[in-house]
Design a protein around this nucleic acid. Sequence first.
DNA 1: ATGGCGGCACAATGCCGA
Length: 256
Amino acid sequence: MLKIATWNVNSLKVRLPQVLQWLADNPVDVLAVQETKMTDDKFPQAEIEAAGFHVVFSGQKTYNGVAIIARHPIEDVVKNNPLFLDEQQRLLTATVAGIRIVCAYIPNGQSLESDKYQYKLKWLDALHDYLDSERKLHTNLALLGDYNIAPEDRDVYDPAAWIGENLVSPPERAAFVRLQHLELIDAFRLFDQAEKLYSWWDYRRMGFRLNRGMRIDHILLSPPLAARCTACVIDKVPRKWEQPSDHAPVIATLSA
DNA sequence: ATGGCGGCACAATGCCGA
């Protein structure tokens, strides 16, 4: 049995104790981390390794930054998308326990009028092409991360209020569908799930207490991994801790 | 209608996130 997870920690400097606590509490084999918000020289590699994990990372100052933490050796690491020149550190790929792990922090987009939105769509287009090449090299392929896309209205607390907005706009959702056309399957939707389950809640307006959230963190699996997947859950526990990230971890369980 | 929280920085207000 293997558990793979993703968590946007919103600053690893602030959240490192919570990440280590969560890893101690949860027997996950791989954790894809987004928004480390630190340069590589500041990365807490020694602390994570001292806790018994392997780790690789690709960061920058203030924004973005991704990492892969694993209980097993990490091999064949690739930083960024070879098909997309990008100064922002948002993509990290590595092989762990025979699975090609792609950790992605997909751009937020800000608003449909923003240049950042155009960047988001271009980034998604390049991600699609990169995954199309990766899936031909690796039958066991998993894309984990903060997608900044709520795929369907049931992934949004108030769909009527969000029609056409950033995170749900048709071009973004089409990009998500295009990833699925690469035979990448949304692990969460492999199973019957309760209604109103989300992975992010706004810090403001009591978003979490009122469960005003969005499901924007996802785990997509290639067919052999989807066939092994026995569960996919969102862990709301760390969102209830003091000084939490605004995102919750998502965990997929794979049978041996 | 606006911003409301939280993290960060050539910080003491402005930016970005989602």
